[in-house]
Design a protein around this nucleic acid. Structure first.
Lengths: 263, 263
DNA sequence: AACCGTTGGTTCATATATTGAAACGAAACA
DNA sequence: TGTTTCGTTTCAATATATGAACCAACGGTT
């Protein structure tokens, strides 16, 4: 394994739950030698990827990340219009909405728009959180449209159980994926977080490949059948627009059109 | 030089002006071998730091950056390292030092470090005090780097006169701002408090926007030309460090570097 | 105060991962 | 068509990473 990857693995230790850690702790979590981890951390620090608190000696994520993320956002192609679609979906549905993107085996949050808060109960989503492919509506939707190799790769990894309704067997996941494929959208009913229902549809890129998912998360209590259908239509429309903004090919777009007409 | 740093150097090639680049171009810019750069890019890609457009083969900054930056922002530690820079500046200059931040049309004190008291005359600063933009070195420095709308807004407000040398006309202020812009630092000679000379430089945030100023306040009596130049260099260096800690973009940092070299 | 289990950090011989010139096929260009 | 440039692969030479052992310092216990 390359040194670069070993070093960058360190960054993945940091999370909202664990915003800072010391040398020994990092080495333990990675199962590596302190000396190596120290050298890696020093290199990362030199480039501003992490920062060390001179008092506590703990490391935390550094300013270079803010800078680079800013560059990425500023130069992300055609991002603005896509974000607008997500925002509109949040407004129309009145619920928390998030767009996720697939990259290197992971489904990561692209943009999260919190529910327009006019009181009442809403779902909160952590924008830094990675979405498990097997336990979220977004994940199931994506798996239902991606290439087989990608799906197999995802299923090969351990299927962590989050709630009593998390599908943890290959068969259970595949069945959900299959219904999602037929319907054109996925419903995740408390499989990741109890009481939160996700309704998601795949988004496609210019090559016609699945590249992520758009999803609305609602409290289970607030969903009856007509409301559900309403949201499904909104999500499908948003997925169509985002895919279109990314230059998805005609046959993908028209498939959305027939799905929306059916809903 | 460690491999990690060499790999991370690649990320610095990306900028709003150059949001994507190919392998050869990157290798050329870095003066390194294509093969190495390819391996580095592949490693970075595996960790999501860059992404390769499968069509054009060009690389651009990856989703891991957005994710990690989000974690960093959520867990933003009350920036200890920045305070350290201010403290160090106070120590190196031997004078009272303060970092101010712009917010809602006002320049407010972020952190004030009193001069290391080894006797003699020093300037006292009230940490609760708001800094008039037109009459302090910090204010002039900030105005010399902020966007036009902000500057106009500041000039539209009444220009209170504090001492005989307070600039009270729009033209007088603008002239000071212009010299500050050219020099990269501002000197406020008793414009707010007679006998107190401020030397300030703008600090920038991750968006590359001016967000405040760092300043050293000395008694006029204790300043000769060489001492002044000494402090200017220290202030510029501190501004550079603070901006860096806030993730300011490369072109901002390098501007500081040239200014420091000139001083 | 002496002891203990930590911590972050350093050293150096060993072993391993990195390196870069050269070569390749593909694509773009003239 | 030949020419250039591109991304990518290979492999021997070597520069670099590694980790066991060690150190000094800190914070609790006894």
């Amino acid at each position: 394994m390359s040194t670069i990857i070993k070093a960058l693995d360190i960054l993945d230790l940091f999370s909202p739950a664990q915003p800072a850690l010391g040398l020994s702790e990092a080495a333990r979590l990675l199962g590596r030698d302190k000396a190596s981890v120290l050298r890696h951390l020093s290199a990362l620090e030199e480039k501003g990827m992490v920062e060390q608190d001179s008092k506590t000696k703990q490391y935390h994520l550094g300013p270079a990340l803010s800078r680079l993320a800013m560059v990425r956002e500023q130069t992300a192609p055609a991002n603005h219009s896509i974000v607008n679609v997500v925002r509109q979906l949040a407004k129309d549905s009145g619920e928390t909405t998030h767009l996720s993107r697939y990259s290197n085996g992971r489904l990561v949050q692209g943009k999260v728009i919190d529910a327009p808060s006019r009181g009442g109960i809403r779902v909160q989503i952590d924008p830094a959180e990675e979405l498990p492919l097997h336990a979220t509506a977004s994940g199931i939707a994506f798996l239902s449209s991606c290439r087989t190799a990608t799906r197999e790769q995802a299923l090969a990894r351990p299927l962590t159980c989050y709630t009593p309704s998390t599908p943890t067997s290959r068969e259970a996941v595949l069945q959900q994926v299959e219904t999602a494929r037929i319907q054109g959208y996925a419903i995740g009913d408390g499989a990741y977080e109890s009481g939160a229902v996700g309704i998601a549809a795949t988004v496609f890129n210019a090559t016609g490949e699945a590249c992520g998912a758009i999803s609305v998360a609602s409290p289970a209590a607030s969903l009856n059948d007509t409301r559900k259908r309403e949201i499904i239509a909104l999500v499908l429309e948003a997925a169509r627009q985002i895919s279109w903004h990314q230059g998805a090919p005609q046959h993908v777009i028209s498939q959305f059109d027939t799905r929306i007409a059916a809903a």
